[in-house]
Design a binder for these strands. Structure first.
Lengths: 239, 239
DNA sequence: TGTACATCAGTGAACGCGCGTTCACTGATGTAC
DNA sequence: TGTACATCAGTGAACGCGCGTTCACTGATGTAC
């Protein structure tokens, strides 16, 4: 029957989910390169070979965790953006950036898995590319909306001619209606935000920056300015 | 005698160096988390326990590699900067940024070791902090020189008050004579440059940017503009 | 210069561990008639 | 509703491997007189 068939499948889906949950928990303790199928099985109370019913190899488990990671940070950023007034461009930008950083600080090993150095011996399959764009989509929408509202200054040097096709492709997906120069600076700002978070998380700001919350906000707004988003010099008053 | 004593010590130094060379070569193949003392010993034709005469543990070998890595990228950036006319601020900035990226592309695993996610189970000791500042020192000198020459626009929002002491400390070491706002934006730009290189190396620009050389140059100059360095809109003519 | 001793480098075996993956198997859960 | 069969989940043992680190040891290289 269909009902009973889905019953078995439901159990299967539940266990698959439980395995990734346990794996994610262990990831948070030992980091991706040290993550082991056997340890996951042990914690689940199964024999290690049983996990192979759910994931054909360790790499597939890692792939699942990467996809989950991209989705998790994607959701965090989407929610941060959604909580802002649509026309408050600097507010949305800052909220989205804070969303990335907040998620990263809460899940450092997951962050390292998706934005850090590649796990040795593991090669990410195509499947991981699409969920990776989720964060970019939110940042892109903010810039697009700002452009549509005429709230972007397209100043600064023009990007190289070879960037044209890339910009055109990005306009079709995450940055509709955004001129080449702003596309280039948006990409730069995106990489910069992640660079800032990585610096903080990977220890490069040790003994350098004390109040990292405040510094990050300031840096994020500087980068909004780099893109050309019109940012108030002082925080706007709230009634 | 002193001469013979240094003879023995010379052999020791040579072998120590050879071990790190082999380790660095293997690092380039398997990545830091998979680097193993035994494999290094095997390639050297020694028994694994012999390596312990030179490095008391695997962690100490990793530490040596990290320090070497910081020094190597430091040298690369210093040389890139030194090849430019002292008063050509944008040229020096671009050269230094290219130096980081060029070294990173040539030594991706070493780059990942120093700027990527931390190696699980390894905790970097204090020794690694000082050589880490070598790159920052070059970038800092460029900004300092530009400030001294009056070639920096200190525009944009002020950094948070809590950043004051950090800026003061940085002024004493790598950014003499640089006002708080420019210090903050220099740090942001520094993290951004490394973020761009990481994005490229760790696969985030896959299917996004085609001509990465040209894009990087453009991004680096955008970030020079973020700091406030006065950049010519068009490349200056050369006679 | 020659000898007695101390220092050091490198050996080989071992300890104890964990890993990914395969495979033949036992039961339980589902399906078809 | 009941039975015969097929599918699937989980077991337990095994394969073959590599790892970091310790330790008692043999020789060679240096030092002091």
């Amino acid at each position: 029957m269909n009902a009973s068939r889905t019953a078995r499948e439901r159990v299967r889906a539940e266990l698959t989910r439980e395995i990734t949950d346990v794996a994610r928990r262990q990831l948070g303790e030992v980091g991706a390169p040290a993550l082991s199928l056997r340890a996951v099985a042990r914690e689940m109370g199964m024999v290690s070979s049983a996990v192979y019913r759910y994931f054909p190899s360790r790499d597939d488990l890692l792939t699942a965790l990467i996809i989950d990671g991209y989705n998790a940070v994607g959701v965090a950023v989407e929610q941060a953006d959604a909580a802002c007034a649509r026309d408050d461009v600097p507010g949305r930008w800052l909220a989205a950036c804070r969303g990335i950083r907040g998620w990263a600080l809460a899940h450092p090993h997951e962050y390292a898995l998706v934005y850090g150095s590649p796990v040795p011996g593991y090669r990410a399959p195509e499947q991981t590319i699409e969920p990776a764009s989720r964060v970019a989509a939110v940042l892109g929408a903010i810039v697009s909306d700002a452009c549509a509202a005429g709230a972007v200054d397209d100043v600064g040097a023009s990007p190289p001619a070879s960037f044209g096709p890339d910009a055109a492709r990005l306009r079709e997906t995450v940055l509709p209606g955004v001129p080449d120069g702003v596309v280039a600076r948006s990409l730069t700002a995106w990489a910069s935000i992640v660079g800032l978070v990585s610096f903080e998380l990977f220890g490069q700001f040790e003994n350098v920056i004390t109040d990292r919350d405040a510094f990050f906000d300031h840096a994020a707004l500087s980068l909004a300015g780099l893109i050309g988003l019109q940012v108030d010099p002082a925080p706007r008053a709230r009634i």
